[in-house]
């Protein structure tokens, strides 16, 4: 479904991605883990066209989408929930969700999906007329995920959905992701610092270090990998 081939990205003089290659299959749950500054977020942002690649190729459903404008990539079905819960604070919860469906024109289906998101996150329904900025951190993250779902993404890319959330909420967020993936068949590409949770959920996972992929395998494989355990899970082998 998504194929990234030898991606190179520079921020000014800094070589941020040094040849990233990865693959996401339909219905897959893929995690990218790694330390701060490894290039995880940059990879996602390059895929959706928010950052331009200097070299390499991004392919979605067999078509080249490298460096296409973001709105075009989004209309093909790749949706990103950006890092730090970038919801729209001055818009109501409902308006935030409706914006997720901005690229869609099927009004009846949008209304049905809105109900589905409310089912998934009942909290959002209670607060649908409240401004997004008045929600708590966890609610905002749910809003961000719900908003992305409103776009009926073929591929949902999530950037650090657990950032700044209480452990209990982190668990809830990951459960929702699992549900979306298994029940609705939405393909998920997850970037996480919380390596344990991300690997546990992932069917396929990649470990990034300073702009390179250093390890790849199924989530289970990486969970027991001594290198990973030592570096990211804080377990001495």
């Amino acid at each position: 479904m998504l194929k990234v081939d030898n991606l190179h990205v520079y921020y000014g003089g800094i070589h941020a991605l040094k040849g990233i290659s990865l693959k996401v299959d339909r219905g897959d749950f893929v995690s990218l883990v790694g330390a701060n500054g490894a290039g995880k977020s940059t990879t996602l942002r390059t895929i959706v066209g928010l950052v331009k690649a200097k070299e390499g190729r991004v392919e979605f459903e067999g078509e080249d989408i490298t460096n296409k404008p973001t709105h075009e990539i989004v209309s093909r079905g790749v949706l990103l929930t950006p890092e730090g819960r970038r919801i729209f604070p001055n818009l109501t919860v409902r308006e935030n969700l409706m914006l997720g469906a901005y690229i869609r024109k099927d009004k009846a289906d949008i209304a049905a999906d809105l109900e589905k998101v409310y089912d998934l996150f009942p909290r959002l329904k209670e607060r649908q007329n409240q401004k997004g900025g008045t929600l708590s951190g966890g609610e905002q993250q749910m809003l961000a995920i719900g908003r992305a779902l409103m776009g009926r993404p073929k591929l949902l890319a999530l950037d650090e959905p657990s950032l700044g959330l209480a452990p209990l909420l982190v668990k809830e967020v990951f459960e929702v992701l699992k549900e979306i993936n298994e029940r609705d068949g939405t393909t998920i590409l997850l970037v996480e610092q919380n390596a344990y949770a991300a690997l546990k959920l992932a069917k396929q996972a990649y470990v990034l270090e300073t702009g390179r992929i250093v390890l790849e395998g199924t989530g289970e494989e990486l969970l027991v990998n001594p290198q990973v355990r030592q570096a990211y899970l804080g377990v001495s082998s």
């Binding site: 001055n90 914006l99 997720g100 901005y102």
Partner: peptide, 17 residues
């Protein structure tokens, strides 16, 4: 709605398509 979204957060608005 899109206009107000752009005012609130341009990057997120772009990510919405």
């Amino acid at each position: 709605r899109a206009m107000r979204a752009v005012r609130d957060n341009e990057v997120a608005a772009e990510a919405m398509g």
